[in-house]
Design a protein around this nucleic acid. Structure first.
Lengths: 221, 221
DNA sequence: CTAATGTACGTTACCGGTAAGTAACAGTTA
DNA sequence: TAACTGTTACTTACCGGTAACGTACATTAG
């Protein structure tokens, strides 16, 4: 495995075109997310990245290795978004949960280029979608997705516990169902035209009901 | 006519073996659900059904036609389950919603053979999973999924309205997010080991919060 | 009873396209 | 020189789909 030590060289948008490997990876991430993993061949990736298949296989041992790296990268970007969303309300887990769902609607997806330019319709959760395509024999890729979702579950349950919920695991799981459902429904309903529009109110309702033993007299909001 | 007419040809327990077309369809439905649509080729379907590719193309014009029929059939079975679940509480929409989510956990998926025999891990929603695999150019298949999910959304919103929810569309959408999330998470967490375990309590909480201006004094249930 | 016919299905071989992955060689640049 | 990259050509395998032919059986007419 090739380990790049100079990670901090991230300036891509400037004139000098990045290394072939990086171009391939960025292109592949984009194509994988938009069209699915199985639907995108290495030839398409290479030509779209302005190179050819041989340079692909000089940079990656196999397509599966690229996919694994893609999934890990998406996971990293996702939790980066997560941490960033809750950072402003450190010490206030209840507000952190609300902040998560507030920024949920704005986040089409973790974009490599920081902007959701050509991505007209968000295609949900990259890792979750991969779970649909991953065949049952593939322990490597399936394991990545499983660990990822398990970590999300763990974080939501912890937030619920820190917020003082009566049944923290139940609240955490319920919030996770909302998030998962939002991603899933986005595959069918573009942007926020689907039931995802109700996600913030739903999350707030669940949090209120789980935290306030005596619910507030009227809608707090 | 030969002397070996005494051999009983019935290996299947219920009478004569069904027609090739039916065998192909049942087999394909099973394989599509378990492994995904793109992952299953017509050769695999045919041989698994005990026939060959030519008989496949004598029964179906193309693989896409079979897929469309598969999706329609899954949709039909799903709404059949739906109607069956709420039938016992006609006239009581609130209980109908609860009944839906109560039977949600039991329903691994609409099984062709009525039993969830070989299907160890439920693979979520057949239509929803198809949405991941359907390429953007396929209007036919994409349209089927879109109509299906739109109908679910319509039904849940109507139930919420009939139940007297303050914001029926919001409650309906929130309930749909729970359902979608349940299916999605089932891809990663087998059976009910994932966050789906909290779906009934979450649904009840949302319904209570939306219907009771003054929530019940303590947990009813 | 026999023969003809239609229907349903099996078998083999093949097509064009595309997939993942590799070999060998040539050009570029530091 | 040595590392990196581009190019062409190739292998192996599978995909959806088709052609041509062979077989078993039921029906019906003569």
């Amino acid at each position: 495995m090739n380990v790049k030590s100079g990670v901090e060289v991230e300036k891509v948008e400037l004139g000098a075109k990045p290394r072939v490997r990086d171009r391939i990876f960025e292109t592949a991430s984009d194509l994988f997310y938009r069209h699915g993993i199985r639907a995108v061949g290495v030839d398409a990736i290479a030509s779209e990245a302005g190179t050819n298949k041989m340079s692909f296989y000089r940079a990656f041992p196999s397509k599966d290795d690229l996919v694994a790296e893609y999934l890990h990268d998406q996971e990293r970007e996702y939790f980066s978004w997560w941490d960033q969303s809750i950072a402003a309300h450190a010490g206030n887990p209840r507000r952190q949960i609300e902040a998560l769902f507030d920024s949920y609607l704005d986040m089409a997806r973790p974009q490599p280029k920081g902007d959701c330019g050509g991505c007209k319709t968000s295609r949900g959760c990259a890792l979750g979608n991969a779970a649909v395509e991953i065949t049952e024999g593939n322990e490597l890729l399936g394991g990545i997705v499983h660990e990822y979702k398990t970590e999300i579950r763990r974080r939501l349950r912890k937030l619920a516990r820190d917020a003082g919920a009566r049944e923290p695991d139940t609240l955490g799981d319920a919030l996770m169902l909302l998030m998962e459902g939002g991603y899933y429904s986005r595959l069918t309903f573009p942007q926020n035209s689907g039931p995802i529009a109700a996600i913030t109110k739903a999350a707030r309702t669940l949090v209120d009901a789980a935290i306030n033993a005596e619910p507030r007299a009227h809608k707090a909001r």
